[in-house]
Design a binder for these strands. Structure first.
Lengths: 198, 198, 198, 198
DNA sequence: TATGAATGAGGATTCATTCAT
DNA sequence: CATGAATGAATCCTCATTCAT
C-alpha cells in the first residue's frame, strides 16, 4: 500500500547505497562499519538490513553497477565516434577518463575493494571487468590490423592503458590545476603514444 | 640475556614483519588481525607486542621500508646508467618494474593500504613517495630540456608512468606467459613512447 | 469488512497457528523467529501481529489448546470403555499414545518448550497438565482400590507412565517398523505391567 | 610459564563449563546468551572465547561429557553386579536413576537441548547415546534368552525404560517427599515389571 | 624473550515489536 | 485485512591491546 511509503523506502535505499559507496571509498570495505554507513544514510543500523542482504552483497551490488556504468559510458562514446581507429581510441579513453574523474568513489572501489568480494561475487565482477578490457583490446587490435597503430604489444598496451586511466582517482584533485576535460584529453594523447599511432 | 636469545629475537622480529607483509597484502590492513599475523609468524599473539608498538605502527614501518627500498633500487640502477636521457629513463623504469614484480606484497601495500595510515605516519610516507616521483620527474624534465623527449606534459607523463608500473602487481602472474624481464622491457618501451623519445 | 475478508482472516489465523506449531517444534521457541513463522504461514511479518499479541502469547495459546485436546481425547476414549479398571487404563493409554503419535509437534512443544512460557501462562498450562495427570492417577488408584492393580506406588507409576508415553515423540518414526496402533498397544501393555494388573 | 596462571586458567575454564551447564539447563540453548554464561562464570564475555571455540562447540562438549559420564556410571554399577539378569538390570537402572537425579542439568541438556547441535556434533552425540541404549538392550535380551524375563518386546521396553528414567529430571524435586535412593529403587522395580521378570 | 589470561569496544546480523498507511 | 518501513536491544563473535609472570 501507500505510494508515499514506497517512495520513502526507495529514498532510504538510495541513501544507503550512496552512503555505502562513499564510506567504502573513504575507509575501505573492512574499515567502514554498517553502523557508520547507516549513520551517514540517516537511518538506523537495523533498517539497513531491510534493504541489503549483507555487507558482502552490498559491496557486490555497488561493484556490479559500477562496472556496468563504466562499460555503458565507453560504449556510448564509441557510438558517436567515426571509423578511424585513432579517433575511436581517443573517444573511448576520453570517455572513460571522464567517467573515472566524475565517479571517484566508484573507481576507488573498483580499484581497491573489489578483492574483498566473496568468491561467487568476485567471479561475476571479474567477468564484467573483462568485458571492458576486451573492448579496449579490440579497439587496439583493430587499429593494428588496419595499420593505424604500430605497437608490437597490443595486449600489454591495452592493459596498461586501462590501469593508468582508472588510477587517475589516485591523484586527481577536482580543485587542482588540471580540469577533468584536460586530463581526459592528455590521457587520450598518452593512449595514442602507447599504441604508436601513425 | 644471552646471545642466542638476541638472535632468536631477531628471527622473530623478521618473521613478524614478513607475516604482516603477506597478511596485509592478502586481506588488507583491516582484514588482517594481529592474531592472524602472529599465527603466520609462528609466535604468540602477545609476543608480537614485544616487537611492534601497534598495528598502525607496524603498517607504517612496512611502508617506510618499502618506499625506501624502491627508491634505492632505482637509484642504484641509475648509477650504472650512462648519460643519455632515454637510456637513463629506460634503466629506471626497468629497475622499478622488476622491483614491483619481485616484491608484490610490498607494492600491494604501497598501492592500496597506505591510506589506512594514521595522519602522522601518512605524511611521512607521502614524503618518501614524493621523492621517488620527483626522481622520475627530473629524469623526464632533463630529457625534455636536452631535446631527447618531446612530450609537452612531462609531469603528467611522469605520474602516469609510475602509476602504470606500480600497478603491474594488479595483473602480473609469475607463472604467466611473460617473464619479469620481458614485462620490464616492454614497460620501458611504453615509457619512451609516453615521453615521445626521439 | 466483507464476509470474504473475514474468511480470509480465519484462514490466515489458522495458517499462522500451524506454522508456529511446526516452527516451534522444529527449532524451539527461541530458535524460531516470528519472521520465520510468518514466512511459513505465507503472510507478512507485521500481519502476524494482527492475530497474535506476542510471541509468548502465541506459545501459550498453542500449549493451552494442545493440553485441552489431549485431555479431551483421553476422556472420550474412557467414555466408550467399560467398567473394568484394566480395560479403562488400556483405553486411556492407547488413546493418549495415538494422540501423541498423531500430533507430534504438539507434544514436542508440551514436552520441551513449555518451560519458556512466562510466569502467568506457565501456571495456567501447568494446571491443565495436572488435570490430565490426575485423570490417570484416579484410573490407577481406582484399580488398586478395587484390587485389580497391585502396585504399591500408584502415584509414581502414574507419573512414569505419562512421561513414557509423551516421550514417544522422541523416537517414533512414522515410516518405521512399528505402526502407531502397534506402538499404542504395546504401551498399554507396559502400563498394565507397571500397575501390576491381575 | 607461571603455574599459577595456568591454574587460574583451568579454574576459569571450569567455571565457564559449569555456568554453561546450568544456564543451558535453565533457559535452553538459545535462551542462554554467552554474555549471561560469562556473567555467571564471573568472567568477561570475550574471555569465554579463550576457552570455547563457539557456542555450538560448548554445547557439544557438555553433551559429549555428559553422555560419557552416564555410560561410565552404569558400566561401573554393572561391574559390581553379579550374574543374575534381574540383579544386573536392577543395578543398572538404579545407577542410572541416581545419576540422573544427581546431575539434573546434564540430563535436561541431554533430553531437550541436544537437538540444537549442529549436524557433525549431533551425529557424534547420537552415537554415544546409542551405546548406552545398546547396553540396556543387551541386558534385557540376555535376560530374555536366559528365561529370566518374559517380555515379548525387549527392544521397546528398553527404549521406554531409558526414556522414563532420563525424564525423572522433569519432575523430581530434591526437597520432595521421595529421596533419590527411593526413587531409584522404585524405578528399578518398574524396570523389572516392564521386562516381566520371573 | 615469551606466553596465557584477560578485557572493553566494536564487528555484522537478527530479534520482537510498532506504526503509518 | 494487510503491509513495508522503521527501530533499539540483543545476538554471537573478533578486535587490538594490556598485564602478570
Amino acid at each position: 500500500m501507500t505510494d508515499t511509503q514506497v517512495q520513502r523506502g526507495r529514498a532510504t535505499e538510495q541513501a544507503i547505497r550512496e552512503a555505502a559507496l562513499s564510506c567504502f571509498s573513504e575507509r575501505g570495505y573492512h574499515g567502514a562499519s554498517i553502523r557508520f554507513i547507516a549513520d551517514r544514510a540517516g537511518t538506523s543500523l537495523s533498517n539497513v538490513y531491510n534493504y541489503v542482504a549483507s555487507k558482502d552483497e552490498l559491496l557486490a551490488q555497488l561493484l556490479r553497477r559500477a562496472s556496468e556504468a563504466q562499460y555503458a559510458q565507453v560504449l556510448e562514446a564509441l557510438d558517436g565516434a567515426g571509423e578511424d581507429p585513432a579517433e575511436r581510441l581517443r573517444a573511448a579513453v576520453e570517455a572513460y577518463a571522464r567517467y573515472v574523474i566524475e565517479h571517484r568513489d566508484e573507481l576507488v572501489l573498483s580499484n581497491t575493494e573489489f578483492r574483498y568480494l566473496s568468491r561467487p561475487h568476485r567471479t561475476e565482477v571479474v567477468e564484467l571487468r573483462d568485458r571492458m578490457q576486451r573492448l579496449v583490446d579490440d579497439l587496439i587490435e583493430d587499429g593494428v590490423r588496419r595499420g593505424a597503430f604500430a605497437t608490437p604489444y597490443p595486449a600489454d598496451v591495452s592493459r596498461s592503458l586501462l590501469t593508468m586511466v582508472s588510477n587517475i582517482t589516485a591523484w586527481f584533485q577536482p580543485e587542482g590545476a588540471l580540469s577533468a576535460t584536460e586530463v581526459a584529453r592528455r590521457h587520450a594523447g598518452f593512449a595514442l603514444a602507447l599504441v604508436e599511432a601513425g
